[in-house]
Each structure stands twice: as structure tokens, then as C-alpha cells.
């Protein structure tokens, strides 16, 4: 039997088939582009609000009187007036988008109450803020107020915590806002 010799000589260039690879690569690329979504980071403000009032008992010596922050809205839901323990804070400043910008107004009051002590048993740990909001108030102002009482970002980008216990006062009745 005659064996057929290969006609290829050693100098032949081996050509890789690029087409299937490029097909797959482009399919992958299209898939990733289509599923790509820029999502902004989100975070939570934790609040604990049991329905039942805490059981009456011996008052804790470290119990600090609840700080009351009242947020009043105008007819459009915009923050119109803010009170700290029944004392009106002013002036409130807003940016072009209607966001309240001078949070330091409320924060300085909080800092004055809780002082600079931190750690277990400190006033800062036990202080509690009660937010009393108008029904029609835009929710973003609540978050702005919670941000102001919760803490702030320091110079070195670290978060300095203030009050961690936040609760809502009973809802107010529906008004025009």
C-alpha cells in the first residue's frame, strides 16, 4: 500500500481562525455593555420604634431628656420652620434644588446638648431625638434633619457620630400640605 505523503512543507504558515473568537468576544462585550448600570451607593439610617411604649420602671440615671426637633412645612411641603426643644432655629437656608443646606444650625445645638464625651455611658450614647414633623413635609427634609443630628463628616473624611437614637413623634393630622 502506498502511503500518501503529506504535501505540506515546514515553511507553511499556520493560520488561526480568528472569526469565531472575535464573534464570541464581541458577544461578550455587547452583553456586558447592555447589563452595565451605574448605581449610586445607598445607606441606611436605623431607627428602632416599637409600637408599645417602654415599660415604666425606675428611670435610668443616665437617661437624657429626649431632644425634640419640630419640622414644619409650608403648603408645598418645603421646610418652613424648625424648632429645637420649642426654640425656633433660623435662618434656614436652601440651595437651588430646595435642599436645606445649613445643617450646622441644628448640629451645633445637638453638640451643645450632648457635649464631647463619647463612649459607654456618655450622654451621646443615651441621647435620643424625637422628630415631630408636619404631615405634608417633604421626606427629604426629614433625612436632612436625621443627617444633622446623626453626625457629620470630619476633615479627614471620618464620620463623627452624634445622636444614634432617633424616633418619630406620633403622626400629625393631614393638612393642606
Amino acid at each position: 500500500m502506498k502511503l500518501r505523503h503529506s504535501t505540506s512543507s515546514g515553511n507553511d504558515k499556520i493560520e488561526l481562525q480568528m472569526t469565531p473568537m472575535i464573534d464570541i468576544v464581541f458577544q461578550l462585550l455587547v452583553f456586558f455593555i447592555m447589563t452595565f448600570k451605574i448605581v449610586s451607593q445607598e445607606g441606611d439610617f436605623n431607627i428602632k420604634m416599637p409600637l408599645a411604649a417602654p415599660a415604666a420602671g425606675t428611670p435610668d440615671e443616665l437617661q437624657v431628656e429626649t431632644i425634640r426637633v419640630r419640622l414644619e412645612a409650608d403648603g408645598t411641603g418645603r421646610l418652613a420652620r424648625m424648632s429645637f426643644n420649642d426654640r425656633v432655629l433660623s435662618p434656614l437656608q436652601f440651595d437651588d434644588q430646595g435642599s436645606w443646606v445649613n445643617a450646622d444650625l441644628l448640629r451645633s445645638e445637638i453638640v451643645a446638648v450632648i457635649g464631647t464625651d463619647r463612649g459607654p455611658g456618655s450622654i451621646q450614647e443615651n441621647a435620643e431625638v424625637e422628630l415631630d414633623c408636619d404631615f405634608g413635609l417633604n421626606y427629604r427634609h426629614v433625612i436632612e434633619a436625621i443627617t444633622a443630628v446623626s453626625g457629620y463628616v470630619g476633615d479627614d473624611d471620618t464620620v463623627i457620630k452624634l445622636v444614634e437614637k432617633i424616633k418619630f413623634a406620633p403622626p400629625r393630622p393631614v393638612t393642606g400640605g
Binding site: 441606611d44 439610617f45 409600637l51 412645612a73 413635609l137 421626606y139 403622626p171
Partner: peptide
Amino acid sequence: ATGRVQELIKACQENSFEKFAL
């Protein structure tokens, strides 16, 4: 409206949920 958020919280409280994250 903040009142609506509070109503939602209340509805959860009535079902014994007490931990919230805004």
C-alpha cells in the same frame, strides 16, 4: 409626604415590626 412614611411605619408596627432602616 412624611406623614405617609409615618403611616407606613405604623402599619409595620401594628404587625410587630420595630426595626426600621430609612
